[in-house]
Design a protein around this nucleic acid. Sequence first.
DNA 1: CGCGAGGATGCAATCGTATTCATCCCGTAT
DNA 2: ATACGGGATGAATACGATTGCATCCTCGCG
Lengths: 351, 351
Amino acid sequence: MGSLKMANPTSRDIAEIAGVSQATVSRALRNSPLVRKETRDRIQEIAKELNYFVNRNAAGLRTHQSNTIALLLFDETGGADAQINPFFLSMLGYISRAAARRGYDVLISLQQLSDDWHVEYQASHRADGLILLGYGNYVTYREKLAALSAANTRYVIWGPVIKDHPGHTIGCDNENGGFQAARHLLSLGRKRIAFLGQTSPRSPEFSARYAGYMQALLAANVHPDPGLKVDADNLEELGYQAVEQLLAAGESFDAVFAVTDVIAIGAVRALLNAGIRVPEDVSVVGFDDMPLAAHVTPALTTVRQDIRLAADGLVDAIVGLIEERPVESTLMAPKLVVRESCGAKKGVRHK
Amino acid sequence: MGSLKMANPTSRDIAEIAGVSQATVSRALRNSPLVRKETRDRIQEIAKELNYFVNRNAAGLRTHQSNTIALLLFDETGGADAQINPFFLSMLGYISRAAARRGYDVLISLQQLSDDWHVEYQASHRADGLILLGYGNYVTYREKLAALSAANTRYVIWGPVIKDHPGHTIGCDNENGGFQAARHLLSLGRKRIAFLGQTSPRSPEFSARYAGYMQALLAANVHPDPGLKVDADNLEELGYQAVEQLLAAGESFDAVFAVTDVIAIGAVRALLNAGIRVPEDVSVVGFDDMPLAAHVTPALTTVRQDIRLAADGLVDAIVGLIEERPVESTLMAPKLVVRESCGAKKGVRHK
DNA sequence: CGCGAGGATGCAATCGTATTCATCCCGTAT
DNA sequence: ATACGGGATGAATACGATTGCATCCTCGCG
């Protein structure tokens, strides 16, 4: 009835009010069966009344835990101006939800290559484990990842699953995804399929997509033309430029497989800009199925990575590591999503 | 030389190695001038060598701080399936960077209406202050915000600046933005400008944009037609449906002002789908300038909210509150960004 | 040669919770 | 009636850093 006010109540305050010891309060608030149900309820009631919440610093100090997961996004841009990879951003929401469901908070951190992120988070007890997004490039990160392992830090990477690789990985079967994309274009009668994307060893995920693409071509007895392969990093402008480059080189092609939706969107813009119709003249397929893929015009056919499932997998894995359960790296199956940009729908295509 | 290994070094371990007291170590690591420079350097060296990092729980317990800002995103969707508002997501990156620059970590949390978020974060010492995104709807949140204030929680809201409103706010001058959008369309000779967006008191930001739009019409002596106003929440589908609805009602219009880029993109899709050319037949203007606005086809003319500036402002404000400096609510100026969808560029328009 | 000032460091008391171990109480079996 | 067992609670301590205060040393000056 009389609402008890108090600035910063502690468990000791509650103990005093409830007429029990602080130890009992601590137990009661954690729902310990050691405390009689009646007492427990009474204590919890008082806590609620006082707007009391366990001091996480104190609890963490005692238990050596933080109940927090650090989400490290590799900040490719390096600068303060650029946008973060939207694919990772949209993953973030699902990760946060999944973590909350398991009682973990999520700390985000944009990391640059020069940063000393490799140990700090866990060593400082800010986080119990790390989720790494954008670190698919193992060549660059090898030493840092090794340092993480050496420091006994718990971490999970979103990226290609590679054997003999330190740490645990959740990733998408990129090769299969690239295969599906190319096979679909071939099934539509397309034969000259341009490939847009970076395939250096620095980008193993994109390289895998390329490998899948090649595999599909060979399976269909279509001879790949090196002139149709253009390197392009993951930016809309670069997708645009890649197509400009193909056109300037006088290459003829009837389809484009872009290693990323972002690149695909740039490619479409360049095509339309050059008076080439999509999908009538050129079919376009992207990769990722990012939120806007369905909403650009024409709606983008793409290879979906189920980011919700991915997020759940990442959180499951890191929580598993934290709670010392066995965890395995897993490869998720991508899925072709057919929309308008490839021309398979609505019979809009060349008849 | 000999790399000293140690599982979880504490400041006491370092003290022992350095041959000083633990207190001195603590001071040295915080760069206190009380410690002689030589000693300080030596201690820091040892700390680095041992891969030692200050235990944040212990430090936080002692200092009653966490050096963490909680970023609360209102999870409009409520469900686990939907995407988070991309506008907020892209803000997140900048907020994280700005916070890092000031020595703060960022904790993210998707909150639903039913959640008891109003006090927990600060009371539990998980965060020193809160940034609220997506809480523009003060009618719904009034009591929760009041509770925050009552609990002496430090928070900053991204949203409309309203007088007599508890707490501090950073926002964009939505009315002016709406005015600019409509005035631009009028200057292109458009007279029948549809307005797409929710304007209930639950959405004061959108209502303000509508007010600006009305003001521009009146200033140009154009009589607003109620039939051209369609309610639509912030989803691409709903933008699509809004245009469908206008067309089904047989309304004639030569422009669309969508209260959001997401809605605008849906509107464009519906228009193109109906065989209506954009911008030749209908000009479209959106609001926000989200990352993809420039990259859809046709590129979207829109009213930009400078999210980088906004993020800096929010972080400045919350850090100011935390460090007990005076802070004021501020209103930022939006800016019209002319691209293709309005027809002002390239002389593509009806001549 | 003594004394005071001030720079450098150490001592020890917190911060609020979780948990081990001891204690107490009560019912039941002998 | 007594001893015993187990359920419920309390006392005491540890977690690792920060910080006010005491201490000590050195140097300059009278």
